[in-house]
Simulated assay, not measured.
Amino acid sequence: MNSKNSTTWASYDSDSDKYFDDYSKLYFSNIHRQFIKFLPIQTGAKILDIGCGSGRDALSLARRGYQVTAVEPSNKMLALAQKKNNHKNITWTNDCLPYLLALNNNAYDFILISAVWMHIPPDERETSIKRISDLLKAGKHLAVTLRIGTPDTKRIMYPVSIEELLKQSSKFNLKPIYISRETKDSLSRKEIIWKKIVFEKE
């Protein structure tokens, strides 16, 4: 998902219909049920969905009354998301980590980064975390899902670990307040497990 290497998300362009259909089979309330209690209380709060993919999560959050900025680097995935999961509360943005330049100096009440971190090259992760922290308001929450397991050879992926993420996030005032147990893959891929982490910005 880095700006220097568009091939990172090339498969999402070439197979956008497949990925859209796969992700649309799942529901926010099931996939992210551990995150729901950390969502902002106030209606109209600003939420950032980094790597929004099909727009499934952005739509669910928008329907809850939040103002959602949905960021996606794949042009074709973004077009599908905007066409099929559009909502008046969603602003669709074509951009990518580590810099997210299109977001300028915006500040958000909640940030979701789900099934994205494995696409970030290790040498860009600290820059990415710093940028994410800068975009998050003090006292608010960042929710991350980590894909742990065999990489998909059709997509560019890098190893991830919760230890690395915790170490890097601690440098930028992000304190872990929830770490899940390992959970099975919702698409029944036996070689993959997930860890979910919520950070609070100090």
Rank of each mutant, 00 (worst) to 15 (best):
W117P: 00
G44S: 10
E72P: 03
N5F: 06
R64V: 06
S3H: 14
G53T: 10
Y23I: 09
I177D: 12
H32S: 05
N105C: 11
S169C: 10
A102T: 08
L146M: 06
S133Y: 08
L142Q: 00
V71G: 11
S161H: 07
I120V: 15
T7S: 08
P122R: 10
S128W: 02
I197N: 01
R181Q: 14
S161L: 05
V116Y: 00
F110K: 00
Q67R: 15
A79T: 08
H119T: 11
N105W: 09
G65E: 12
N75D: 11
H32W: 03
R155W: 06
A10L: 09
S3P: 05
Y158R: 06
R155P: 02
L59G: 04
P122S: 14
A62G: 06
A138K: 07
L80D: 03
E72M: 03
L100T: 05
L165E: 02
E200A: 07
A115Y: 05
A45Q: 02
T127C: 12
H87G: 13
G51P: 04
E164Y: 05
F172N: 05
K195P: 08
R131Y: 12
Y99Q: 06
K37H: 12
G139A: 14
S14W: 13
R131C: 11
K37E: 15
S29A: 10
A81C: 08
G55H: 00
K195V: 15
L48Q: 03
N173E: 07
V198D: 00
Y108N: 02
L146I: 13
T91N: 15
F28A: 05
G149C: 07
M118Y: 15
K171V: 12
F38A: 06
Q42A: 06
L146F: 07
K18L: 12
L187I: 14
A58W: 01
K84T: 13
K130S: 08
L59R: 02
W9A: 01
R56I: 07
H141Y: 07
G51H: 01
F20R: 04
K190Y: 10
I47F: 02
I111E: 05
N89E: 13
E72Y: 00
D134S: 09
K184P: 08
L136E: 01
N85Y: 02
E200S: 06
L165I: 10
A81G: 05
E182L: 08
R125T: 09
D49I: 05
P159I: 05
F20Q: 04
H141F: 11
N105R: 15
S16V: 11
S54D: 10
K140R: 07
E202L: 14
T145E: 02
L61H: 00
Y178Q: 07
N75T: 14
M118A: 09
N85Q: 09
A45V: 11
S14N: 11
H87F: 14
H141T: 08
T8G: 04
Y19P: 00
K196S: 06
T69W: 04
D109P: 01
S74Y: 01
R33Y: 09
A58I: 05
L187V: 08
S128R: 02
N75E: 12
E202H: 11
V198A: 04
H87V: 15
F199N: 03
L187T: 08
I193D: 13
T127N: 14
I41H: 13
S114C: 14
